[in-house]
């Protein structure tokens, strides 16, 4: 294959004295769905945030489509075509649903906003019903959908999702994953951080397993699903 879209090479990052990432290497090709699983505190969120320069990378290199991210200021990353849907949704609570979506266009400007709003409402019909409502009045699942839609509003080439299933009922998780599948079938490259190993590995082409700030394993979804260690650690054997 040719050059990967996102290429992370031997990256270290730390919060003060705590080293949260240790020699992390991984890559994602255009059009792939790649998942990263790992226990609480493994460093998954840290890896995503370090793409945005917070915490800063102390060693190693990150390239996005040939551009070195480590030399870019944090607020420039999004406009390169990377959208992050942060862990815990982080919607703008006192803004309406539509305003939240409009905020999502920050990295690219409002050129395509009407077209993209329509697209999002097609993808998430519930958001259209609620578009005048304050985001704080949405249910957890609806907020997660809003966070994903807000991320998509910047027309990213790479979508980073941090635990979209966090605190959601199984049926809503199912719904969200089927929407992600739809998004991916449109050619979107997705990097999915998950605790919900079963769902994540079924959706993804490939996956990585992280523990204590290191990448322990990597392989295709089915490979990892049948791996004894992974089964023991995440699915109770």
């Amino acid at each position: 294959m040719n050059q990967p879209l996102l290429d992370i090479q031997e990256v270290d990052a730390s919060y003060g004295p705590i080293q949260a990432l240790n020699q992390v290497s991984m890559h994602i090709h255009q059009g792939e769905i790649v998942t990263l699983v790992g226990a609480n505190g493994a460093g998954k969120s840290t890896l995503l945030m370090s793409l945005f320069g917070n915490p800063g990378v102390t060693r190693g290199e990150i390239h996005f489509d040939g551009t070195a991210l480590t030399s870019q200021p944090g607020h420039k990353i999004a406009s390169l075509g990377i959208a992050l849907v942060p862990e815990g949704r982080h919607v703008f609570a006192q803004m309406s649903v539509e305003e939240n979506l409009i905020m999502g266009t920050t990295p690219i400007g409002t050129k395509h906003v009407h077209e993209d709003l329509e697209k999002m409402y097609e993808l998430f019909p519930i958001l259209e019903e609620r578009k005048q409502q304050n985001a704080s009045t949405l249910s957890g699942g609806e907020q997660q959908m809003l966070a994903i839609a807000r991320g998509l509003m910047s027309r990213p080439r790479l979508l980073l999702l941090d635990e979209p299933s966090l605190g959601l009922a199984p049926i809503v998780v199912q719904q969200i994953f089927s929407i992600l599948k739809e998004v991916a079938s449109g050619g979107m490259t997705i990097f999915l951080v998950e605790q919900n190993v079963h769902h994540a590995l079924k959706l993804a082409n490939r996956g990585y397993v992280m523990a204590n700030g290191r990448i322990k394993l990597g392989g295709t979804g089915t490979e990892l699903l049948s791996n004894r260690e992974v089964r023991e650690a995440y699915m109770g054997g």
Binding site: F52, N54, P73, G74, H75, K76, I77, A78, S79, A83, L84, V85, P86, H90, V91, F92, A93, Q94, M95, E99, I102, M103, G104, T106, P107, R150, G151, S154
Partner: peptide, 21 residues
Amino acid sequence: GRAWEALREDEIACRSLGLNH
């Protein structure tokens, strides 16, 4: 003005949207 309000609402979201805080 929108950016001010966004900053008040949620700093992490602002960071991920590339607002120069």
